[in-house]
Design a protein around this nucleic acid. Structure first.
Lengths: 135, 135
DNA sequence: CCGCATCCTAGGTGATACTG
DNA sequence: CAGTATCACCTAGGATGCGG
């Protein structure tokens, strides 16, 4: 009857919380948005439909692999559609869905907030990293 | 004068884009929010100041290490303050700053959006993962 | 009570080369 | 043109144990 049960209890709590987190819609969204390229691709598509290589050129730092991966993610979530036109060679076009456009609006709100407060945050960071000498 | 310059050009573009990303306030914010625990801690502190162990108990799945790390992050960004009361043993209290409260509001907006649209997204995912047999 | 140091693992990310 | 395959890396995150 020792501390064993306590540890077990904590472990159980942890697992429950983990599965709770896994199902949490906001956590999920944050995870998606947090991935490096998703927001950039959404923003690129915000101006209208684009073809694979157009996006690749527009986002200078992305690799083909990551672009594909990112596109698959947002396509899977119903944020964009993928249209294949069987020309030779094939033409593939990506376009934001209404849902994607809606999310993009939210992202832009976030962007606005970030740009508005970036100064304050940077100041806070400097103060934190270089604490004043006196005390 | 071969393809060398082309490759160099691409590399340069890439580096420029990287440094651009590194300085982008929204990317920075997304990175912070995307980290697993930041939003949860902010939410926990949204109800009022809490002590270290109170947060630890409130967020069942977090480890002490990650809690400390997370708290340092949000403290550094000026989102919360850390107050040490030299009792024995010491009491450490964390409290959201106005900036932190402001950001929390944005997060809650995001949460609302996520919860509103989670159904649609899940449906899209199922359709994507189990494509209809016909064509 | 609060936190740091150390070690470790897993997955997200990237470079490169190849294919239908 | 629009991807896929493979390898390698790096850092976020978890486990554990010690210190003020």
């Amino acid at each position: 009857m020792p501390t064993r049960t306590v540890a077990q209890h904590r472990d159980e709590e942890r697992r429950e919380f983990e599965s709770f987190l896994a199902q949490c819609p906001s956590r999920d969204l944050l995870g998606t948005l947090g991935s490096k390229w998703v927001t950039l691709v959404l923003a690129a598509l915000g101006h209208g439909a684009l073809r694979y290589n157009e996006i690749l050129r527009r986002i200078a730092g992305i690799s083909p692999k990551m672009l594909t991966q990112t596109l698959r993610t947002i396509e899977r979530d119903g944020l964009a559609t993928r249209t294949v036109t069987p020309t030779v060679p094939v033409t593939v076009e990506y376009r934001l869905t209404p849902l994607g456009n809606d999310l993009l609006a939210i992202i832009l709100d976030l962007k606005t907030w970030a740009e508005t407060h970036v100064r304050i945050i940077q100041t806070a960071r400097q103060a934190y990293d270089h604490p004043p000498r006196n005390a």
